[in-house]
Simulated scan of single mutants.
Amino acid sequence: MNSSNKKTGLVALLGLAGGLFAWYKYKTATPEEKEKIKNKISEAGTKLKETYQDAEARIKDTYTEVEDTVADNYAKLKNNVKNEADKISG
């Protein structure tokens, strides 16, 4: 077993131990403590959802800006090519 595999195994073991400890703490918590934990998880979920929605909106806005810029540049280039073609033929 190489060093990388040992580190991966150790991280997995620590993650499992942390999960088991969290499960034990939740199972032995008072109803009030369980409610606090549920509220924290709910708040984290809400923040995650809001962050996702903000990122999605920014991506859409950026895409629209890029699309508009490309369309404008294409129209200008097309017009320039037409003008040059007219000069050459005229």
Rank of each mutant, 00 (worst) to 15 (best):
T8I: 09
L13W: 03
L13T: 10
L14W: 02
G15Y: 05
G15E: 05
L16K: 06
A17V: 14
G18A: 11
G19W: 07
L20C: 08
L20Y: 02
A22G: 05
W23L: 12
W23R: 05
K25I: 03
K25R: 10
K27T: 09
K27S: 07
K27C: 00
T28R: 06
T30V: 06
P31S: 07
E32Q: 15
E33L: 08
K36R: 15
K36N: 10
I37K: 05
I41L: 08
A44L: 12
G45N: 14
T46K: 15
T46A: 13
T46L: 11
T46R: 15
L48Q: 12
T51L: 09
Q53D: 15
A55N: 12
R58L: 13
R58P: 01
R58D: 15
R58H: 12
I59E: 07
K60R: 14
D61G: 05
D61R: 10
T62N: 12
T62V: 07
T64W: 00
E65R: 15
V66N: 07
V66I: 15
V66H: 06
E67T: 13
Y74R: 04
K76N: 08
K76I: 14
K78E: 11
N79V: 02
N79E: 09
N79K: 12
N80K: 14
N80R: 13
V81A: 04
V81E: 00
K82Y: 01
E84R: 12
A85N: 09
